[in-house]
Design a protein around this nucleic acid. Structure first.
Length: 100
DNA sequence: CGAATGACTCCTT
DNA sequence: CAAGGAGCCATTC
């Protein structure tokens, strides 16, 4: 378990319910600017039963990064909508972006 | 060791 | 909006 991994976990855990953050944003707040791919990689290795709110992390275009129609895409969208995040087609509206 | 593969992002055409 | 290129990085083969 690396230090970067823990920093990323920590930031993801801080995203408030009802908001979303991009991979790049998480990387930045974790002190790892420019390493969005690392965030995606770390999240991809989370155990299935993790309590981390990974569904609040989306890409910089405001979309879910899983292929539309895939099971994970639907799961992520369902969880976000359950928290009050609404979509316009497949895009999440700016007002749900996490701001500090 | 090199090449491919992702839960990425930004910039240019 | 789509497509290509460059930068990014751990993991797998």
């Amino acid at each position: 378990m690396t230090e970067n991994q823990q920093r990323i976990w920590h930031i993801v855990a801080r995203i408030p319910s009802g908001f979303v953050a991009s991979y790049g944003q998480v990387a930045e707040f974790a002190g790892l600017p420019g390493r969005a791919r690392l965030v995606g990689h770390v999240l991809s290795r989370l155990p299935a039963d993790t309590r981390l709110p990974w569904h609040r992390v989306i890409n910089s275009r405001g979309r879910i990064s899983f292929p539309a129609g895939s099971g994970r895409h639907r799961l992520q969208r369902r969880r976000l909508e359950a928290e009050g995040v609404s979509f316009e087609n497949d895009r999440i509206l700016r007002r749900y972006l996490w701001r500090v």
